[in-house]
Design a protein around this nucleic acid. Structure first.
Lengths: 186, 186, 186, 186
DNA sequence: CATGAATGAGCTTTCATTCAT
DNA sequence: AATGAATGAAAGCTCATTCAT
């Protein structure tokens, strides 16, 4: 009775999330709420019911992906590869995320206080995940100890912003070079 | 009489340019046109007369700064330093520009087709300037021949986007590391 | 089983009435229906089932209080006090009602045709109650015969609207003076 | 050149004021800004240009009328009538204002902090004007010294709220009785 | 040429009301 | 009967852009 309703609500929520993800990719995180609603075939009111503020929507859209990144970091640490290689793999995967959902890097860049949620999420989850990989590399003497996780994340996040003449391949190449520059000089 | 008119018009144009530069630094390139007009002590109509589209204004504002960068590149090439050092100096200076006038990196990043003017300007002037330095380094065997000027410029432009926990110092450090990763492996 | 249902429905209805009364006091009769539903721990649908229009809810909320006023009038008429004194006591009590449940005076003032119910209630019950007291005073030669019950009720209802610099004490004082002005000149 | 523009703007401003006055009478001070704009045959933007907040509009609409009331008070004080009569005349005139522009009494009643302007206006101008008349009556021993100007103004403001069965005539009669109740007992 | 008033589309957000479950 | 998700019409406010003077 209530179950069916709840199931419907859950479906709405998911429809909204995927609609929003798509819209953010196409038009950036600043896209009108109405656009998201239309994409999800839903009234605007429904958007606000599920996500009272736009920031809630943005955060929700990316929370899932952030979590995946965190999980990946953990899996990589368990792999029998050299720490620096794990870091490289992880950063490459992170970049792919960002590049695919280019809305996310917009969101990361934004200083809008309403996105504090999302920023907190990053600080609380992504930074530690990256930090673990980074420290492993530093402890192994492969990575320069001056590199901080947050700084690296933001830098990669920035390198992920594509534009004319600067596509995925370029972003990847630059990220690789940035990481190379983070290794200890032999 | 026409002379006076022209002089007045010229004055307006310059007032607008410096007002816009200031406003862009404070509030980004998206700042309301009205804000620029007020800062220049001029009616909005005047803005539109001189710069029919916002992109015209943005381009004009940064054209001058782009030119300075180009000039710097030429001066550096004449210096008795190793090519890779000249490149590093230039990139550092370019970064400082971007970081100081953070409006510019917004503008560079923007895919707004209306900014085609500005993009063209970069392709036509900034890329060749950078390219000259880059090629010198590559010819000297100091820089990896796979690095393209446009790619490097965009990457540095991206690294220049500041945010919480990622200030000037971090941007500089990351840029240095990126360049380090662009050098030929010994 | 149906009995239980009915009992449940009755409970809902009463929960709604007291929730609405509280909400109206806090936020006025214009408060969102949703607020009332939440206060009553009930779904909005239930509000609409019991009270198809907002006016039904408002009327129901105040019917009970109107009835109390009517009863008081009857009790006062039976008291061994001079008619004009009975009138004064009743008006004072009525004012206290209004001032305490400031939602009611909002409702009385409203010209919203949807509140016709409530207005009818007043005409049918409150006016006659007041009228009886009034006439007694007029018959005793203590109250000016030109004073009409409805007019007096509305005036007192209006005087009950508090605001900055005009609190309960002021409302009471003004009501007393209004009534004094309704007495026959000696 | 600019003069004509200014004249046009002035005309707009006045059109807005009279449109707003009319709309407020018909629908209360809470009427949508858009309604006022339409009534004035003007875009919403124009309303906001002239009156950045709704409160500014409301205040402007009534400022003029408040001033007239104040002027009237001064003229009446100069008349060769007994103080209490002057007070009665003034209150009657004030009531007529309120009753004619019934939006004003809504506005006076409102506790919306955005209307602080208007409230201040009343406290600063209307209260002293009323106070002068009141004190004259009190000094002459005709009016009860316990009556305060603000209280009286609010009470009259309240009595001015019309409704079904309570029209202008009733409001006037009640106001007269209220004032009668404010006189010193002989 | 310069001005700035006017315009109105567009965005966010709220809430009364309906209706499938 | 009860629920609460969904809907969509308002309403407030901002700004890019036009155009009469």
């Amino acid at each position: 009775m209530t179950g069916a309703r709840l199931a419907g609500a859950q479906r709405s929520r998911e429809a909204l999330l995927s609609a929003a993800a798509a819209v953010f990719v196409e038009s950036g995180v600043q896209a009108p709420v109405r656009t998201v609603a239309e994409r999800a075939r839903v009234g605007v009111g429904t958007v606000y019911r599920h996500f009272p503020t736009r920031a809630d929507l943005v955060s929700a859209v990316y929370r899932h992906q952030v979590t995946e990144c965190v999980d990946l970091a953990e899996r990589l640490r368990a792999q029998p590869v050299r720490p620096v290689e794990a870091l490289e793999l992880w950063v490459a995967a992170f970049l792919d995320f960002l590049v695919t959902k280019h809305g996310l890097s917009d969101a990361l860049r934004s200083e809008d206080p309403a996105l504090a949620n999302l920023h907190a999420l990053i600080l609380d989850e992504l930074v530690p995940a990256c930090d673990a990989l980074l420290r492993a590399g530093q402890d192994a003497g492969e990575v320069d100890p001056d590199v901080a996780a947050l700084t690296l994340l933001r830098a990669v996040g920035n390198l992920a912003v594509l534009g004319p003449g600067y596509g995925r391949a370029e972003a990847r190449a630059m990220t690789v070079r940035l990481l190379a520059g983070c290794r200890t000089s032999p």
